[in-house]
Amino acid sequence: MTEVNNTPENIESAPIIQAGVTSQWLTENGFDHESLEKDHIGVELIKVEPEYLIPIATALYAYGFNYLQCQGAYDLGAGKELVSFYHLIKVNDNVTEPEEVRVKVYLNREDPKIPSLYWIWKASDWQERESYEMYGIVYEGHPNLKRLLMPEDWVGWPLRKDYISPDFYELQDAY
């Protein structure tokens, strides 16, 4: 039998992240997710796989997160993943310090598809459209997923870090 040497030099040091209240509740109720380190202002972050987004979002709504403060997306860098996030708040009698959580979904940039949360929080309507327009994330089930800010025939996703701006863009008559 071989003895394992568990000295600090032989153990890979990975930060231990303590699950927040919402993450603990999700775990107790059997929802698959990953607790991430809190952000710089102490908001709990939860990583969710795209296929589990609808059940987890529905559970969070039932748990009291009745307000979608912000939905957005960002690019981790050329060749890396895209991230779609939802910042949720429990709006209730405690308006001075409401409970907050941010749900993040990491997506393959080659085929970034995620279910729309429009049917849970109507406020995600134009926010998901903007994330689609700027990053190319397809929000499946969205009732009107089309460009919001740029011409409908624009090619590419302007806020991706690997986006190459066209040399010119031909303006159409606006009559």
Rank of each mutant, 00 (worst) to 15 (best):
L45Q: 13
K113N: 03
P50G: 03
S124N: 04
M134H: 00
E99N: 12
V83M: 01
F85N: 13
T58F: 01
T96M: 09
E97M: 13
V103F: 01
V105I: 09
G77K: 02
E97N: 12
K38H: 11
N92E: 02
P98F: 11
W119I: 07
L45T: 10
H87Q: 10
S116N: 05
A78R: 07
G136D: 14
G42W: 03
L76D: 11
D125Q: 02
Y61T: 01
I89E: 08
S35V: 03
V103I: 15
L117I: 15
I120H: 04
P98A: 12
Y63V: 06
I114C: 04
D93T: 06
K113M: 13
A57I: 13
Y67V: 09
A123L: 10
W126M: 15
E110A: 10
D75F: 02
T58P: 12
K90W: 04
L88N: 05
N66G: 01
F85R: 00
V105C: 03
P112I: 09
G136C: 13
V103E: 09
S35W: 12
K80S: 05
I114P: 02
P98V: 10
K122Q: 08
V48W: 08
P50N: 01
A73D: 04
E110I: 13
K47Y: 05
E97F: 14
E133K: 08
K104Y: 07
V91P: 04
Y61K: 15
D39R: 07
K122E: 14
E133I: 09
L76V: 13
A123P: 08
Y86C: 01
I120T: 10
Y106C: 08
Y61W: 09
L117E: 05
S84C: 07
D93P: 00
Q127D: 00
V48F: 07
R129G: 11
G79I: 13
Y135P: 14
Q127F: 11
P55K: 05
L53F: 13
S124F: 00
Y61V: 11
V103C: 06
K122H: 03
D111K: 13
N108V: 03
L82P: 03
I120W: 06
